[in-house]
Design a protein around this nucleic acid. Structure first.
Lengths: 179, 179
DNA sequence: CTTGAAATAATGAATGA
DNA sequence: TCATTCATTATTTCAAG
């Protein structure tokens, strides 16, 4: 239940008291969440039950928030992604009203931002007609107090599949540097 | 190896020839990629080997692109997310040069967009100093031919954890409507 | 696609460094 | 405290129909 190591010095990675093995496990699980605990155990040099317990702790600590299957939305017919910058009429309910935009089925994410606009929305749709429907019928005509929007169509997106792996590698390197 | 159903009519969901059971499996696996094939089998009313084969086919067809563990980057010390709109000096290598921005460790995603800027970057960093380093040392001083950038700090992000589940539900509903 | 047997994996108890 | 081994239970995989 408690931490396994001396208190973390305020330095980055150790923030949640993760040791090298925890980070290695995270790295492997990010790459493939279906890996068996046995093979994870072999790779990090522990027994399977020990791995199971560490994983349970990482879940309890909120470091691991879920296990999901990545699907290609484009293969499912949602081939058009747009980012919409939104200016709203602000008020005391701004935060809650912004959150409610995620109730629109096509809205994947709503980000409250600094800058010339208040919100950044990520929206996935099937095609131009569907986009039209979402932007005008669901966003503008809803009572969402939207003053202005600026829509950017995604032409191509690049994302390294090992992005989070590299972050964990960096944390592992930081950990090495501390010892 | 081959499709299990008559040819898809051009209508949305069936695009990759997915039937109701495939969509149900995707829905369950998106919610929890570690669910056993056995319990998936029970839920959709098939045997475990049949489920295993369908999953293998979904992988082969590129609908399932991976299984990953969701981690809280904030818990790992990466608490600051920014979106950067970038205008570049365009040229024949624009696409490839844009892709190369993902070589920067902190850059999670690069999107080529329409609109007043050419690129939208999502960047995760530890703190303000780290952001400063990435923006000025890695982005601006790299030979990336960046003309202008507009950085927006994420103050809060809302994302329904069932976003993709709802998309799959919609596809299931569409399938029902066709029959 | 199903069943059922064989191989592999997860879990929990008892226990040791 | 943290991890180990071993026995039990559960799951995946393979062959056959």
């Amino acid at each position: 239940m408690n931490s396994r190591r001396p208190a973390a010095r305020g330095t980055r990675a150790a923030r949640k008291d993760l040791d090298r093995i925890d980070l290695q496990l995270l790295r492997l699980l990010v790459q493939d969440s279906r890996r068996s605990q046995r093979s994870l155990a072999k790779e990090v040099g522990l027994s399977a039950p020990a791995v199971a317990e560490r994983i349970a702790q990482l879940e309890a600590a909120g470091v691991i928030t879920g296990y999901t299957t990545q699907i290609d939305l484009e293969a499912l017919g949602y081939g058009l992604t747009v980012y919409v910058n939104v200016q709203r009429e602000l008020g005391p309910e701004h935060r809650e009203q912004s959150r409610q935009l995620t109730d629109i089925e096509e809205v994947e994410k709503v980000v409250m931002t600094t800058g010339s606009h208040d919100l950044l929305l990520k929206i996935n749709v099937r095609d131009r007609d569907h986009l039209n429907d979402v932007l005008f019928n669901k966003l503008i005509e809803g009572n969402l107090r939207i003053l202005h929007s600026d829509t950017r169509v995604s032409l191509a997106a690049f994302e390294r599949d090992d992005y989070r792996v590299r972050v964990l590698d960096q944390l592992l390197a930081d950990l090495g540097a501390e010892d």
